[in-house]
Amino acid sequence: MTLTGLFIPLITPFDAGGAVALDSLEALARRMLEAGASGLVALGTTGEPSSLTEAERQAVVDVAAIVCREHDAKLIVGAGTPQALEDLRGRGEVHAALTVVPPFVRPGEAGTIAYLTQLAANSPVPLVIYHVPYRTGQALSASALTRLGSLPGVVGVKYAAGITEDAIELMAALPPHFAVLGGDDLFISPLLALGAQGGILASAHLATEQFVALIDAWHTGDVATARALGHRLARLSRALFAEPNPTVIKAALHAQGLIPTPAVRLPLLPAGHHSLTALDVLIPA
């Protein structure tokens, strides 16, 4: 299985009573895929999974699975523990699990590799490693990611570590069938220029078609189009991440009438009005 193109880590919309708005989630998922996204990510960080009940998490996955099946799209589900991965057994519509590098513990590269190797060996679905060191506190070198990418149960990495020497080294010698999907929205264009296969981009809830076009432009060698789009979408991403994710994205979707409320659950707080105002000139018509 090769992962390529745009994947959108779905927000979880809430209704006026605070419940998960499943109808809005379904409509939003359809909108993203009809705009050209290759697939969806359910229960990623953008979906606030830690604030959902087990029943809510299952309902979110069920909705995403239905829509992906309708559109012949790939579904990735956030799952970072042995039990969460085991819960995906028998769910044939799930193509891979997005598995974060162990946060907070900071076990070092050797411990991280050993842990993820064990998870991959026992998982019922392939893993996409989520490398986001500014959240987990655990950096991984290009050589560590290459080792993980060589495992038969690992198909890719969501790379959210900016553009560094490690990123350049990783892109220069990727293992076969190992996809690099950019996950640091601000840096997606330069990572695609280095050869990334696609992105898992929360910003693509807005301007979905333009993010699809950005990936296509780099893949087809249309550098002039890619550069112009990349600069424009980087400004959009910066504005969407002006406050903790996904607060500004939810505010923007609500302002467009795509979700019933801009609500988030604690410990997040709703985005301020100033953040939404700053988006007015950045969101394509």
Rank of each mutant, 00 (worst) to 15 (best):
V60L: 13
G17H: 15
Q58M: 05
N245Q: 11
G198D: 02
Q138R: 04
H219F: 03
L201H: 00
A207D: 12
F14T: 02
V212H: 00
V125C: 12
D87N: 15
G162R: 13
I11H: 12
S203A: 13
T220P: 00
A202R: 09
F7C: 15
A84W: 00
A167H: 06
A213S: 13
Y159G: 05
P284S: 10
D15Q: 09
G36L: 05
L6R: 05
D166H: 14
M171A: 13
A196S: 07
A226T: 06
F211P: 00
I188M: 11
I163P: 03
D280N: 12
R235H: 12
E54D: 13
S203E: 07
A172D: 15
P102V: 09
L33S: 07
L186Y: 12
P49M: 06
T46P: 01
A278S: 11
E34K: 08
T136M: 06
L40V: 04
T146E: 14
A251S: 10
R57S: 15
L85M: 09
Q256K: 09
Y115L: 07
V77S: 12
P190E: 02
F241Y: 12
G183F: 07
A224E: 13
E56R: 03
T12M: 07
V180G: 01
L258V: 01
G183E: 00
P102D: 10
T208I: 01
D185A: 00
R265N: 03
L40D: 04
H131E: 13
P82I: 06
S24Q: 02
H231F: 14
P244S: 14
A110P: 02
A202V: 08
I11D: 08
P260V: 10
L52R: 04
A252P: 00
L236K: 03
P246A: 15
R91P: 04
H231W: 13
S150R: 15
I129T: 10
Q256W: 04
A285M: 08
G199Q: 07
A213V: 01
P124G: 05
I129D: 03
T99I: 11
L33C: 11
P133H: 08
Q83K: 15
P9Q: 11
A167W: 02
A27L: 13
L191W: 01
L253G: 00
P126H: 08
A202P: 00
E209S: 05
R265D: 07
A121V: 01
G198M: 04
